[in-house]
């Protein structure tokens, strides 16, 4: 049984870590971008960002004043049991979100869409989102918090098989340029592309591709991995950099995730994470052990399974 008070305290720590500490994989990617940046204004911006990460860590203050819309991804091993059950889990995640908002502090971004009511704690109807995944083995729980910005850099389009790769490229470029102008997407960023699924899942796939995969990860399908490389280079050949200034870095990584879709369609979503790429992860075991990391490791073979029966599919792949 995993104790709920422990989940609560780990969740609070993760909220602070996500807001304050730039993940190492993204930092490495951004430093590489800064080293190659050819635009003088863009290079100044990247240098300022690198100084900003240091200032945030030194002062223990959030990296960015817009601390995004905090959300949770929870993954459970098949044998994990939570003290008080899933309702108790959701309560402590909501409580940790509210406490971190005043404690760190974060910006209380969450408001009612029509009445603009603000509880000043980032909690409200459907907020924070809590999404779940499962793994066949293990008695642990993974807590992942992501604080992604909410306004720019994301778009969806229903394409069709006849649109093909050329159509996918077009919508990818359209999205990068539209939100890259004036730097609305806070690039250079990890770009996530969702292909397939139903409309809502297409958005989810792209969002997870940008927020739950690290810089340097690759899709296991070699054809998709090749597209990831090609799309990264394509994005960086636009001639646009940080803040939409002339430059050579828009895309720190391009991650593509797919899901099976309607035979007549090719739904596509594009998501830009941001210059703060806020995510933090911890695994908690029933004996009280806690291991923090920055790689959500969400897209396991189980998450990408293609067949009905998991053990059979696993053996077939081996």
């Amino acid at each position: 049984m995993i104790p709920t008070p422990l989940i609560h305290s780990v969740a609070r720590d993760l909220m602070a870590k996500a807001a304050i500490e730039i993940p190492e994989d993204y930092l490495t990617g951004l430093k590489a971008a800064a080293d190659t940046e050819t635009g003088d204004l863009s290079a100044f911006v990247l240098q300022a960002m690198l100084e900003n990460y240091e200032a945030a860590k030194e002062d223990r203050r959030a990296m960015c004043g817009d601390t995004g819309v905090p959300r949770w991804f929870v993954k459970l091993g098949n044998d994990a049991r939570i003290e008080g059950g899933m309702v108790a889990l959701e309560e402590v995640l909501r409580r940790a979100t509210a406490e971190a908002t005043t404690g760190i502090p974060l910006r209380p971004n969450r408001v009612h869409p029509l009445w603009r009511t603000d509880h000043d704690n980032n909690v409200g109807i459907g907020a924070p989102e809590i999404e779940y995944g499962f793994e066949p083995d293990g008695d642990w729980i993974d807590l992942i918090t992501v604080h992604k910005g909410g306004l720019f850099g994301t778009d969806y389009r229903m394409l069709f098989p006849s649109d093909g790769i050329e159509g996918i490229k077009r919508f990818y470029l359209d999205s990068l340029v539209a939100f890259g102008k004036r730097g609305l997407a806070c690039q250079p960023a990890i770009i996530g592309i969702g292909l397939g699924g139903s409309k809502d899942i297409c958005m989810t796939l792209g969002k997870r591709a940008s927020t739950l995969r690290v810089v340097g990860s690759r899709n296991p399908d070699p054809g998709i991995a090749a597209l990831e490389d090609e799309f990264k280079d394509l994005g960086n050949s636009i001639g646009m950099g940080a803040m939409g200034f002339v430059g050579s870095n828009m895309v720190v990584a391009c991650n593509i995730e797919v899901g099976y879709c309607h035979t007549g369609g090719l739904p596509m979503s594009v998501h830009a994470f941001c210059l703060s790429s806020r995510r933090a992860v911890a695994r908690i075991w029933p004996d009280g052990r806690v291991e923090q990391r920055t790689d959500p490791d969400w897209f396991t073979p189980y998450q990408r399974r293609e067949t009905v029966d998991w053990p059979v599919a696993k053996e077939a792949a081996e």
């Binding site: 960002m49 945030a56 990296m63 960015c64 817009d66 730097g183 940080a242």
Partner: peptide, 9 residues
């Protein structure tokens, strides 16, 4: 600048 250099500001 950035966006955003929240900690520096």
């Amino acid at each position: 600048v950035g966006y955003g250099t929240g900690a520096l500001l």
